[in-house]
Simulated scan of single mutants.
Amino acid sequence: MSDKIEVGVIGLGKFGLELALNLRKLGHNVVGVDTGEERVKAAKPFLAQVFQADGTDQQTLEQLSFQDFDYVVVSTGDSMEASILVVLNLQEMGVNKIWVKAISEAHKKVLKKMGVDFVVFPEHFAAKQLAHKLSTPGMIEYLSMGHDVLIKEREAGDWTGKTLIDLNLTNNYQVQVIAIRKNGSEELDFVPKANQPLGSNDVLILIGARENLIKLPDS
């Protein structure tokens, strides 16, 4: 596992709490802050340090040493004004990395203008994921990389007995096989050998632009 990081999370709603919980599962140290008593209570069984406090109060953040964290995530619900105020306070405190959950395109645009390190718009991203999943059979993941880059599964099917060298997918379709798993198994064999014949039970995990992945013949 990578080195532990210290993360402050301001706002423990659905997104903020879920992020904090996953960071803890990965072994990182998380300090959570929220104004709501119920949200703080909900977080306490999972986070070692949770405080009921106003994240827009710079003095409070300084007392909690937010200026010393590796990252601070701002997830202040539906208040664009509160989010922007928190970011301004964190910037004045010299916080190194600020990540913010945006609630609208306008909010996202303002945050970018403010020089925020990373802006996430969960609803927008989730909707785009679902749209791609509905329209691209076998898709596992949509990657936001400037283009419609997808990760897709394909059973070996008529490729059984052929090697990745034989298929030459990079040159023929501009896609790459990043892993292979056995049908019915979740275990992945990453960076598979290019000279090993595919078995009838193999499922290929491919990455590439959507327009290229949909050109692949059905299995």
Rank of each mutant, 00 (worst) to 15 (best):
D3H: 12
K4A: 14
I5K: 15
E6I: 11
E6D: 14
F15M: 00
E18Y: 03
L19V: 14
R24K: 15
H28I: 13
G32H: 04
K44E: 14
P45R: 10
L47C: 08
A48W: 10
Q49F: 10
G55H: 02
T56L: 02
D57F: 03
T60A: 08
T60E: 04
F69V: 10
V72R: 03
V72Q: 02
T76F: 00
A82C: 00
V86P: 03
N89T: 07
L90C: 08
N96Y: 09
N96E: 15
I103W: 00
I103K: 04
E105N: 03
A106P: 02
H107G: 02
H107A: 03
V110K: 05
D117H: 13
V119F: 09
F121Q: 05
E123Y: 02
A126T: 07
L130S: 10
L134M: 15
P137Q: 12
G138V: 06
G138L: 07
M139Y: 06
I140P: 05
Y142Q: 07
L143Y: 09
S144M: 04
M145W: 04
D148C: 06
V149H: 05
V149M: 12
L150Q: 07
E153G: 03
R154E: 11
E155S: 09
G157A: 08
L167K: 08
Q176H: 08
Q176C: 10
I180M: 06
R181D: 00
F190A: 06
F190D: 08
V191G: 03
K193R: 13
A194F: 13
A194S: 15
A194C: 08
Q196H: 12
S200W: 00
N201W: 01
N201H: 06
D202N: 10
I205H: 06
L206A: 07
L206D: 04
I207E: 06
I207W: 04
G208I: 06
R210Y: 09
I214T: 15
I214W: 08
I214M: 13
K215L: 14
K215E: 13
L216W: 12
P217N: 12
D218Q: 14
